Simulated scan of single mutants.
Amino acid sequence: MLKKAPWLIGALALLIGVLLLSLAVGAKPLSLGEVWSGLTDSGSSGHTVVHDMRLPRTLLGLLAGAALGLAGAVMQSATRNPLGDPGILGINAGAAAAVVSAISFLGVGSFLGYVWFAFLGAAIVSVGVYAVGGGRSATPARLALAGAAVNAALYSYVNAVSLLDTASLDKMRFWSVGSLGAAQSGTVVRVLPFIAVGLVLALLLARPLNAVAMGDESARALGSNPAWTRAGAMVAVTLLCGAATAACGPIVFVGLMVPHMVRAVTGPDLRWMLPFCAVLSPALMLGADVIGRVIARPSEVQVGVITVVLGGPFFLYFVRARRIAAA
């Protein structure tokens, strides 16, 4: 326990550093003094940039990053699938397809209006992919293939709706690739309760999921109910992925990369893994967002594009490493 605590403190320090970078770096770079003035002095020249634009963006990245990292760790444990990620297995795509449908066909335009559609889409796809992949007998490869097929179908649908509905295209084009650029303080306030409930539920499931990872019979012997544990895990993943996707669009690979990096420090114990993921996932998310702001000044590259660029090689390396290990 004492060996992991310094690592967690270091992870918190890294997150704080990235939070400060997110507030200071952008089309107009600011010093830490200007950031502080922008946060505390409404009359300062940087108040609008820091308080009204970068602060909501940073807080949304903090919440959405933690949500996606926790969702990935819970999915990998509940399905015993090392490739578990809300983006790879199609859950983000399900939420995105439901939100796009609500925007285009029902005229829904507010977060509170379409977050429920995001939950519905995420829940349907999570159950569907798990069933198509083979349920309890699902292998990582079958789940990944099922998720890839669902992803391809749903994102084709999202793109088709976006192209056909020109009135909604501007509203959806940045959101559909995953972006923090349109974050507002109201969005942060509205998404917080959903992510908080999902986060608490995920942390409460750490011990039962540890038992389920050893097999259903062992879990029952330890006093856990595998069916209820998996159901609770699906609820947590739906809340976390649905809220994050509704707020900033579908963002992939955060839930895949961070749990694997964390596991190298904590081992498979979710009582340590989940807190580490909740700290390091937003650090990755906001770090990717800062990179996107810097590499295309004065414009920017959406965070969803950066996470794909970072996560794609990681995914290929991980799959190749597993094949070599299995050979």
Results as ranks from 00 to 15, higher is better:
R230Q: 09
G242C: 02
T266A: 12
R230T: 03
A211S: 14
L203C: 15
V258R: 12
P268C: 06
V237R: 03
L201D: 07
A221Y: 04
W228Q: 13
F253S: 08
V252T: 15
W228C: 02
L270P: 01
A221N: 14
L280N: 11
N225F: 05
S218C: 08
L222W: 00
L284D: 14
V212P: 01
C277T: 10
W228G: 03
G249A: 08
M261S: 13
G232T: 08
L284I: 11
A243V: 00
H260Q: 13
L203Y: 07
V254P: 04
L274T: 11
V200F: 14
P282G: 10
A219H: 01
P268S: 15
G232S: 02
M214G: 05
L274D: 13
P268H: 06
W228H: 10
S218Q: 13
V262W: 02
G255K: 06
D216M: 08
G242K: 01
S281N: 12
G242F: 01
L240C: 06
F276G: 11
V254W: 10
M261N: 03
A233V: 07
V235N: 01
A227E: 14
F253K: 04
L270V: 11
A233Y: 00
A227H: 11
D269R: 14
F276M: 15
P268G: 15
A227I: 10
T266I: 12
M234I: 12
S281I: 11
P275T: 14
C277I: 09
L240K: 07
C277K: 00
L222I: 09
L240E: 05
V200P: 02
A264K: 13
M273P: 00
A219I: 09
N210Y: 05
A206Y: 10
R220M: 13
V237G: 00
F253H: 01
M214F: 11
A236K: 00
V212G: 07
V258H: 10
H260V: 11
S218H: 09
W272F: 15
R230W: 00
V258G: 13
W272S: 13
A264P: 00
N225M: 04
G198Q: 09
A206N: 06
P282W: 08
L270H: 14
A246V: 04
G267T: 08
E217A: 14
L280P: 08
F253C: 08
V258M: 11
V254F: 07
G223Q: 02
H260P: 07
P226T: 04
G223D: 09
I251F: 06
A211H: 09
A233E: 05
S281K: 09
T229R: 02
V279I: 15
A231P: 00
N225E: 12
L209H: 04
R220N: 06
S224T: 12
G198D: 09
V212A: 12
A219D: 01
L201R: 06
L203Q: 12
M214A: 15
L256K: 03
N210I: 13
M234E: 03
G232H: 00
V262E: 10
R220L: 12
L204H: 04
A264Q: 14
C241K: 00
A264T: 12
D269A: 12
A236F: 03
T266G: 10
E217T: 14
